[in-house]
């Protein structure tokens, strides 16, 4: 199978000479869920945010290496185009507070100045909300603000907002860590559905979550990618001593 996303020697530094992510090389395959694990501060978010060029927002951050998304180097593309191809979901649910649920789903289009016909809009909204299992819950309150929903619903709305743009990959940074177990469960089920259409990379603190949903897992430590492989294999027979120590709870 051909990788959809290839990282080659990707390094990111916030201060010159000190790499928060150090020479990470790996391949991500289409229609898989990859979990990025590792102790807090090991560079998981930093790596994830390199993929959709979020580091461009801050002048001091340097990214080197190659990030090849569908054959093109992300670091040489227009960041706005990259971000439409690689959607991101954040830790805190953050629907735009002044927009209705309907407008939140379409926010990617309005913000990019893409005009849609009414039918097209309704189709995208329904489809996106269906794919996050939110349609039935909100179809009668479409004009209410997004902040009117519960935390778990808000997070699913944010996923729908990202999916509406039909990205190639979905980058998720601890998307359930602010949610209760029931909402978490719902989102995990959702991700297993969504991988049929998308490629998902999820940063998670929660090892059992990684075990439940991911096909592949990456274990990072002090900015380096220590181990990457099949999740079941990594959980049962870790190749690296650090990985084993982390998975058995020696540190983390």
């Amino acid at each position: 199978m051909k990788a959809i996303l290839r990282l080659k020697e990707v390094s990111v530094s916030y201060t010159p000479g000190k790499n928060a992510v150090d020479k990470v090389t790996t391949d991500i395959y289409p229609n898989t869920i990859t979990a990025i694990m590792g102790p807090s501060g090991c560079g998981k978010s930093t790596l994830l945010r390199a993929i959709n060029r979020m580091h461009d927002l801050y002048a001091n951050v340097q990214t080197t290496g190659e990030i090849i998304l569908k054959g093109r180097n992300v670091l040489e593309m227009d960041p706005m185009e990259v971000r439409r191809m690689a959607g991101m979901v954040f830790q805190q649910p953050n629907p735009f507070p002044t927009m209705s649920i309907y407008d939140n789903v379409l926010a990617g289009y309005t913000l990019n100045g893409i005009r849609l016909g009414k039918n097209e809009k309704e189709e995208i909204v329904e489809q996106s909300l269906q794919s996050v299992a939110l349609w039935d819950e909100v179809k009668d309150v479409m004009t209410k603000r997004g902040s009117f929903l519960s935390g778990g619903q808000q997070q699913r709305l944010c996923i729908a907002r990202t999916l509406a743009l039909k990205p190639e990959v979905l980058l998720m940074d601890e998307p359930t860590s602010a949610l209760d177990p029931i909402s978490t469960n719902k989102i995990e089920e959702l991700l297993l559905q969504l991988k049929q259409q998308f490629t998902i990379i999820i940063v998670t603190h929660n090892m059992s979550q990684a075990a439940r949903i991911s096909d592949n897992a990456m274990f990072m430590y002090l900015g380096e990618l220590v181990e990457h492989g099949n999740t079941t294999q990594m959980f049962t027979k870790p190749r690296n001593k650090r990985t084993e120590e982390y998975l058995t709870g020696v540190f983390g």
Partner: peptide, 15 residues
């Protein structure tokens, strides 16, 4: 995160 979420959707800074 409002700003970051907007930019992560591919929006321009102005928008």
């Amino acid at each position: 995160s409002y700003k970051e979420a907007g930019l992560a959707l591919g929006s321009s800074y102005t928008n």
